[in-house]
Every structure is written in C-alpha cells, then in structure tokens.
Amino acid sequence: MAHHWHDIHHLFGAMDFFRNQMNSLLQDADRSYITDRSWGIRDGFPRTNLSDTGDNLELFAEVPGVSKEKLNVKIQGNYLEISGTRLAASPEGYTLHRNERVSSSFSRSFTLPYEVDATKVTATLNDGILKIVLPKSEAAKPRQVTIS
C-alpha cells in the first residue's frame, strides 16, 4: 500500500512541475489576460512590479476598476498586504451579455526584501495602477563606506 502511495505522490509531483512550467511560460509572455488565469490558482491578482531605487522600494499594482475607497494597504516591518474589493456588477437597467472581468475581493501579501519605514510610505492611484513608494528604514539604506 505504501508503495502505491509513493507512486501517486510521484505523479502529482510531476503534474505540479508541469503546471509551474506552464505558469512561468504564460506569466512571462503576458499574452492573454483571460487564459492565463485558468492555469493553476488565481492567486496572482493584482499583478505587481517591484523595483529598488536605492533609498526606496517602489511597488506598482494593477487594479483596474477599483476605487481609492475600496483599497487597503497594510505594512508591518517588511510585510506588505494589498487588499480590496473589485465591483464589476451590471449597471442599473442593463442586461449582461458577456462577463469576462472578474468581480471579487482580493488580497495579496508580500515579504519585502528590506524593512521599510511605515510612517513615510505613500500610495497613489492613477488610471487603475496603484503606486506605493516605500522608503527603506535607516538600517537598510545603502551606505558609502570610506576606505581607510
């Protein structure tokens, strides 16, 4: 029996590997917003970019159709969480023909590569893109070392 379990486990391991490969293929290509969500779990919303500009970390998140009031950004140390609700409900008096846009609440959390100063974080929402500027805490900032 134990032998059989091992086989099954093995099989699922191979499937996971295949799925990850497919995911990375599709994610990189950014091809279709509709199809690549059907691969695996829909845990990648919102999509984000993170860059390091020396003193700050900058995070961009793609949140179309989410108003400022419906977004929450939480920071603790180097832990960042973006959550919110996206409403894509039928407007009053209209009948729905086709629904492709996902309407749900979402939450995504990140472990940032550095500790950030939570009091100085700024967030702006523009054209469906949320930009969060996270100043690194003093200890994490780059420092010039003088050679003696």
Partner: peptide
C-alpha cells in the same frame, strides 16, 4: 507603458 526606475526585483506588469 509602465514606468520603471531602479533595479527590478520582479516584474509581472509589462508594456503591452
């Protein structure tokens, strides 16, 4: 087009 600055840690949003 997505503004980029500094070193990219990860990039899921592309210019499309």
């Amino acid at each position: 087009s997505v503004p980029t600055a500094g070193a990219q840690a990860w990039r899921e949003i592309a210019d499309v």
